[in-house]
Deep mutational scan, measured.
Amino acid sequence: MDGTRTSLDIEEYSDTEVQKNQVLTLEEWQDKWVNGKTAFHQEQGHQLLKKHLDTFLKGKSGLRVFFPLCGKAVEMKWFADRGHSVVGVEISELGIQEFFTEQNLSYSEEPITEIPGTKVFKSSSGNISLYCCSIFDLPRTNIGKFDMIWDRGALVAINPGDRKCYADTMFSLLGKKFQYLLCVLSYDPTKHPGPPFYVPHAEIERLFGKICNIRCLEKVDAFEERHKSWGIDCLFEKLYLLTEK
């Protein structure tokens, strides 16, 4: 054995408090879109979701699917093309516009009456609605409950000090017999300040354990050449399924 860690023996890093005071403002996230600093976007979609999607959907149609901090995630069109209703929230209007443009979807925009100064973008087909606002303002819009949440790049982007508020927001959107698919990253948080932030299993239990059954479905090596600039040499991604207790 050469000592290389595999996707099945990932350790939890003990120094989980080192990132707790890290803060990125909404304006800084918007600047990332304006300046093209969106390496977190996956042009081909998320491979773990693609692998498990049909198993999760079980042939159902007409589900309501929520994408927190959606950006221009191509997976939104995957669900819409399968007959589901997609709702996303994203602070960057540019990111939302790029989604519709890159997916060749016509759309309209209208003000969100409950949140002055914000807009919702709706596909002409009517099954994709993307709200351009802070996720913490979203419950004011009465958008209803969801059958499924796809959380990739959301919890790991939320400032650590806001995670409890974020989890409570997610709980307010969950319908009966929900499936909450959650991706988190595992790396040494003493070497990279984030975002994306390190979210250990214990944190998921703390945030969601009282209401959800929590199961880790898969762990994969997600390290890429660009991650060397973070000062790390190891990065794993974990896919969790959260269901109603």
Rank of each mutant, 00 (worst) to 15 (best):
M1A: 14
T4K: 10
T4Y: 15
T4V: 12
T4S: 12
R5W: 14
R5L: 11
R5G: 14
T6L: 08
S7M: 12
L8Y: 07
I10N: 07
I10R: 11
I10Q: 14
E11F: 06
E12A: 12
E12H: 11
E12Q: 13
E12G: 07
Y13A: 11
Y13S: 13
Y13F: 15
Y13L: 08
S14M: 08
S14R: 15
S14W: 07
D15S: 13
D15R: 12
E17V: 09
K20A: 09
K20Y: 14
Q22R: 14
Q22I: 13
V23T: 09
T25K: 04
E27M: 06
E27W: 08
E27C: 03
E28W: 11
E28L: 09
W29Y: 03
W29K: 02
Q30G: 10
Q30W: 04
Q30V: 11
Q30P: 02
K32L: 10
V34K: 03
V34A: 13
N35S: 15
G36E: 13
G36L: 07
G36A: 13
T38K: 09
A39Y: 15
F40C: 07
Q42V: 12
E43S: 08
Q44G: 11
Q44T: 10
G45P: 11
H46C: 02
H46L: 05
Q47F: 10
L48E: 06
L48G: 11
K50M: 12
K50L: 01
K50Y: 11
K51E: 14
H52S: 09
H52W: 08
D54A: 09
D54F: 04
T55E: 04
T55N: 08
F56W: 09
L57S: 13
L57Y: 07
G59T: 09
K60R: 13
K60S: 11
G62E: 11
G62D: 04
G62L: 07
L63F: 11
L63G: 11
L63R: 09
R64T: 11
V65S: 00
F66M: 13
F66L: 08
F66Y: 01
F67Q: 01
F67L: 05
P68H: 01
P68V: 01
P68K: 00
L69F: 09
L69A: 05
C70H: 02
G71T: 02
G71D: 03
K72A: 08
A73N: 06
A73L: 13
V74P: 07
V74G: 05
E75K: 04
M76D: 00
M76K: 01
K77H: 09
W78D: 08
F79D: 01
F79S: 02
A80I: 02
R82Q: 14
H84R: 00
H84F: 13
H84A: 13
H84L: 05
S85M: 11
S85I: 12
V86W: 00
V86M: 01
V86Y: 01
V86S: 02
V87S: 10
V87D: 02
G88I: 01
V89T: 07
V89F: 08
V89I: 10
V89C: 13
V89A: 12
E90V: 07
E90K: 05
I91G: 07
S92P: 02
E93F: 05
E93A: 14
L94Y: 12
Q97A: 09
Q97V: 13
E98A: 06
E98K: 05
F99Q: 01
F99S: 00
F100G: 01
T101E: 13
Q103R: 06
Q103M: 10
Q103E: 03
L105V: 12
L105G: 02
S106V: 13
S106R: 09
S106Q: 10
S108D: 02
S108E: 10
E109L: 04
E109V: 08
E109K: 14
E110Q: 15
P111E: 13
I112W: 06
E114L: 07
E114F: 07
E114V: 05
I115K: 14
T118M: 08
K119T: 10
K119G: 02
K119N: 03
V120R: 07
V120D: 01
V120W: 03
V120G: 02
F121N: 01
F121V: 05
K122Q: 10
S123W: 04
S123L: 00
S124H: 08
S124L: 10
S124M: 14
N127C: 10
I128N: 00
I128E: 01
L130F: 08
Y131A: 01
Y131T: 01
C133W: 00
C133N: 01
S134P: 07
I135P: 03
F136W: 11
D137V: 06
L138K: 01
R140Q: 12
T141M: 15
T141S: 10
T141P: 05
N142S: 06
N142I: 11
I143C: 15
G144P: 14
G144N: 03
K145Y: 14
K145I: 12
F146T: 01
F146S: 00
D147A: 02
M148W: 09
I149P: 00
W150Q: 01
D151S: 01
R152V: 13
G153N: 12
G153I: 02
G153W: 07
A154H: 01
L155G: 00
V156I: 01
V156P: 06
A157N: 09
A157P: 00
A157R: 08
N159T: 04
P160N: 01
G161Q: 14
D162V: 09
D162M: 11
R163M: 08
K164L: 13
K164T: 14
C165S: 13
Y166E: 00
Y166C: 01
D168F: 07
M170F: 01
M170P: 01
M170D: 01
L174S: 06
L174Y: 06
G175C: 03
K176P: 09
K176M: 08
K176W: 07
K176I: 09
K177P: 15
F178C: 11
Y180C: 01
L181V: 07
L181Q: 02
L182Q: 00
C183R: 04
S186M: 07
S186L: 10
D188F: 05
D188Q: 06
D188C: 10
D188G: 05
P189I: 05
P189R: 04
T190A: 09
T190F: 15
T190R: 14
K191V: 08
K191A: 09
H192G: 03
H192R: 11
P193T: 14
P193C: 15
G194E: 08
P195R: 03
P195M: 02
P195C: 00
P195L: 01
P196W: 03
F197E: 04
F197T: 04
Y198V: 15
Y198M: 14
Y198F: 15
V199R: 01
V199D: 00
V199Q: 02
V199P: 12
P200A: 06
P200V: 03
P200R: 15
A202D: 04
A202M: 12
E203V: 11
I204V: 09
E205S: 09
E205V: 12
R206D: 04
L207Y: 10
L207G: 01
L207A: 05
F208C: 03
F208W: 13
G209L: 06
G209D: 14
K210T: 10
K210P: 14
I211M: 15
C212L: 08
C212P: 03
C212E: 01
C212Q: 09
N213S: 12
I214F: 02
I214C: 15
R215F: 01
R215C: 14
R215E: 10
R215W: 10
C216G: 09
L217K: 13
E218G: 04
E218I: 04
K219M: 05
V220W: 14
D221V: 14
D221A: 09
A222T: 14
A222V: 15
F223E: 02
F223L: 14
F223T: 15
E224M: 08
E224V: 11
E224D: 07
E224P: 02
E225W: 07
E225G: 09
K228L: 13
S229V: 07
S229W: 11
S229A: 15
W230A: 14
W230H: 03
W230V: 04
W230Q: 02
W230R: 05
L235Q: 15
L235I: 15
L235T: 00
L235N: 11
F236R: 10
E237R: 06
K238R: 12
K238S: 10
L239T: 07
L239D: 04
L239H: 01
L239N: 04
L239K: 02
Y240V: 02
Y240W: 06
L242R: 00
L242Q: 00
L242V: 07
E244F: 04
E244T: 11
K245V: 05
